[in-house]
Design a protein around this nucleic acid. Structure first.
Lengths: 195, 195, 195, 195
DNA sequence: CATGAATGAGAATTCATTCAT
DNA sequence: TATGAATGAATTCTCATTCAT
């Protein structure tokens, strides 16, 4: 009930694409197997269950994301630079694991309630702490505006970044970095022309 | 096969809540019926199918939304005022039909491929035309920044507004209008403090 | 739970048409009610159940048929004349109660097993006795051929008559009597030209 | 989604028996599965739906029947010999595929209206052409009586043969050929003794 | 490693029937 | 007499999962 790690990864990538395209619940094991060129039952040689595929996809994604985030958070940057770095890393993650991000975006809310996916809630709490803390620091140091509800701002920034996974296609017109740059510019400076 | 419009509306509101909370696919008719205090089969006195409930929820929402949008678009406002009005109407819609908006947000992408829900794609195209046109007008009249990719800006503004449906709860701390005001401020001026 | 006999008869006639056209099992109470211009539940003011409608249709048909058959059988006719009279009465019955005959033809075999419809088996047995007895009498008196298996002949004559209900439409080109005449001619003389 | 042809055939044979015995509509998938010694859901590994089982049973039957009929029709026989051969082949078909014939007999009329079963109507039309043409040829060459309505005769001959499927049991007293011989004798010469 | 064939739990849906009004 | 709204049992079908080969 395990196999070469490469094959697993291939299969997980395939599964992630299908989950992202059709939604986890609407995805049948058969569809994944079709996409992988095998029969549904054969997947069970590699994985315990459909849910464990989802679990592995999401936890791998979050592990990697937090490695990136932690590196940023421990770098001792200023609030604005921290936000810039977090957003840029987020877009890099979207670029490299678009499917996983899209799944996370669509499914994490209702998965959180299940014990097996409690780590999603934990991660969410860490997100909130990191972003919110940075924003508060920015307000305190007069880098960010003080007249906005800080939780509203947090949600604005957070959502603004992650929803992009729903339309982003790697290899498109703009690189992840370029998209990050423009998004940051909008989030930080707004879209209105300054006189 | 149909029945009194009031009962239908009650049941649709119930169904919309459950769809929004659990996702369309993960929602069983039984759950809807439970929430409505009846047996699963009884729903079929009022509706043809689970899908037709979804259909009615989404099309009612879009009809109403477009009535609001059209009123704004025909008012002859300037680009900035148009964006402000569209965003404000969107938050009012979220306030009044949160469930429908959340469902739309989560399900419309993959529903679009089904002929029955082709109107979702039509609506999407109209959205794009309305928002994109307004943004372009704003760039031309030097109300909006010219250095941003206009399609990126469109997606930013569009997503920024609708994702709010995933966390917004009516009767919370801020009114829909207040949230709209703050969002608009962020979208237009950014979150960074201007020196 | 009963009503004017006229209304019952009307409704039974309607039900019989639908049963004949679609088959008993494939006929929903709703279809009958639609055809009668009322709602499904309303039928239950007139009848106990769908099955009791079927029962009443079939038993009424058989009662009438046996009244006719008994008159023939008690008339003291010769074997050939008896067969002729039975066939003619059968076609008259088809003419007047086509739907009931068609239902009988299609459903009686598997209904017979249910206690409620045991009378169908009884009737079948009486049929057999009447027809078979007449044929045997005919063979004995050298009116009918002796070289045929008598049970095969019985089935041939019986089926030959009743299947006609599946295509007969009252008011068509030929009257019931004319069809009876031609059928009788075929059954008795065959279709080959005699030299 | 399909599987080994042998298993399919076994299961189809089982299904055909149950359909023939109880009628298509009254047959539940569970009954078929019981008869096959498996669970209802398991049938769906082999077949798309209950309807597709019916479809396959009927189309297989008609394909085979038409292979036989075409061989006869292309043999250049005289009208009487053609009728004899067609009837004989029909009884052979009844002997070998009794269940399919019985289903065809009972269900084809109302199935014809569904697009999926349009081929039943096509086949019916070909039947009519074949039988009617042969009868007409027989009348023209003075082999068959000219004083009968030819369409009535067609129905008589057609029904006479196929209804036998409702009572025929293979391995009974008479072989298919013997029954064919006696039926042909009745149809051609009649049951009355010739003086 | 993969297949083929199943299992069994539940899903959506249908429909005869009931009953207060 | 008829309606509107339900019930509840049964039905078709789906799907994750298992397992011998």
């Amino acid at each position: 009930m395990s196999a070469s790690p490469e094959r697993r990864e291939e299969l997980l990538a395939t599964a992630a694409e299908v989950f992202a395209a059709q939604g986890y619940n609407a995805t049948t094991v058969r569809k994944i197997a079709d996409a992988a060129g095998m029969l549904a039952g054969s997947l069970y040689y590699h994985f315990d269950s459909k849910e464990s595929m989802l679990d592995e996809i999401l936890s791998t994604f979050l592990d990697e994301l937090w490695a990136r985030y932690d590196a940023v958070l421990e770098a001792g940057l200023g609030p604005r630079e921290t936000i810039e770095a977090l957003v840029t890393e987020s877009f890099r993650e979207i670029d490299q694991h678009r499917a996983a991000v899209a799944i996370y975006q669509k499914e994490s809310r209702h998965l959180q309630t299940q014990p097996r996916f409690a780590y999603l809630a934990d991660s969410q709490a860490r997100f909130e702490k990191a972003w919110l803390g940075t924003l508060e620091r920015g307000v305190a140091t007069e880098v960010f505006r003080a007249d906005l509800d800080i939780r509203l701002t947090y949600r604005f920034v957070r959502d603004t970044v992650w929803v992009a996974a729903s339309w982003y296609r790697p290899g498109g017109q703009h690189s992840a970095e370029e998209i990050a740059r423009q998004y940051l510019s909008m989030v930080l400076e707004g879209i209105a022309l300054r006189e």
